[in-house]
Design a protein around this nucleic acid. Structure first.
Lengths: 205, 205
DNA sequence: TTCGTCATGTAATGGGTTACATGATTAC
DNA sequence: GTAATCATGTAACCCATTACATGACGAA
């Protein structure tokens, strides 16, 4: 999951590990807690070994500018490679059960701006189905086994059911927007007035 | 986490693994997916080795009743031991960072009926603080870095923020109820008209 | 000079999953 | 007799965490 997120972020601009973690935390803050360093650095190694990222020069500007910065030999800036971009495209387009799970869905969604509309729809619909299933399970329990459960367990189920219903409505809206070629903020991206069929171009970085 | 849940469920009645999984799925359906067998059975082994659960006779009724049932030698029914009950009490009362996390909080909450009020309040308040922190993080990002993020990432953050705000309100209500000695359904348990100070007795099982 | 934060890393561990393998019982 | 579900289990793996260790840099 982090593999996907790291490749996605490095596509915006080269970064070193520490910085990457901050960006990751901001981008995925709604989904899960920050990645730990004990996970981040080994993952970077793995991605580098696979050839998907490479070390970049710390200062792309003329080396003479600020010698003090060059002496910070600890920092390793990574940038994505062509193979890395391919890998990202592969990962982001591949939809299956785990892209409908809480975390998997969230990470995919966070990179929807780099995903084509067909994939976005597939993921949103898969997620909706998954949440609907959970919702039905909760309704079942609340309907049939309610008297067997204590007040706290019931309250937990009710709260969970509410969250499911809300998410389904949210997903419905997003799906409707996608179908009519709108982005979540209601705008129609691109220069042409028609709906965008493919990727939204990445923001200037 | 499952250790706690298994001990809690076996306190209601003896069960075999398969049954336990079903109950676990129903009880924790609002929190997470079902436990896998590859996780459940080894855990039962571990709990048994620790002396917290033991194998119980399949048919506590007179053995002559239905011989066919006795021949089902595959099924292993477990029941909790005195040490197991102690262990459960220890686990359920121990509050720390992980009892405020999504899953940890959910499991603790699911067994609030077996928790004393002081612990319930500690957990609810710890959880509230945690969710408030996440909420602030999201507000920060939405306030300060909004223009750097694409429409989808923003939408994700907004949805996450909304969920946080909702949960905080929910927790506030629950905390207020606890303080005034009410259970989540608004009733005041116990025979005496005053608020309950300690455990709510387990439901008849 | 000391504290906070930036910055990178390793080793041990943990808590789970998937895939596989087996077989009994029940319903059609 | 055969399909579904009940029921138990193992082995391999995976993804991540915690705890630890190190050290530079800037500000007070």
């Amino acid at each position: 999951m982090f593999e996907l997120a790291i490749l996605g972020l490095l596509q915006e601009s080269p970064m070193h590990g520490y910085e990457l973690r901050k960006e990751l935390t901001a981008k995925l803050g709604a989904i899960r807690a920050a990645i730990s360093y004990g996970s981040l650095y080994p993952t970077l190694r793995r991605l580098q070994a696979a050839g998907w990222i490479t070390e970049a020069a710390e200062t792309p500007a003329t080396a003479e500018e600020i010698p003090a910065l060059t002496s910070r030999r600890g920092r390793v800036v990574y940038k994505i490679t062509a193979e890395g971009k391919e890998r990202f495209a592969e990962l982001i387009a591949q939809t299956g059960p785990e892209s409908y799970e809480d975390t998997g869905f969230g990470v995919h969604f966070a990179f929807f701006a780099r995903t084509d509309r067909a994939t976005r729809l597939r993921i949103l619909e898969g997620r909706r189905r998954k949440v609907e299933e959970r919702r039905e399970g909760l309704r079942d329990v609340l309907g049939r086994a309610a008297e067997r459960l204590d007040a706290y367990t019931l309250e937990l189920q009710r709260h969970g059911l509410d969250a499911c219903e809300r998410e389904v409505r949210w997903l419905e809206e997003l799906i409707a927007n996608e179908r009519s070629g709108r982005t979540p903020d209601g705008s129609t991206p691109g220069t042409a007035p028609g709906p965008s069929e493919e990727n939204i171009p990445p923001p200037p970085g």
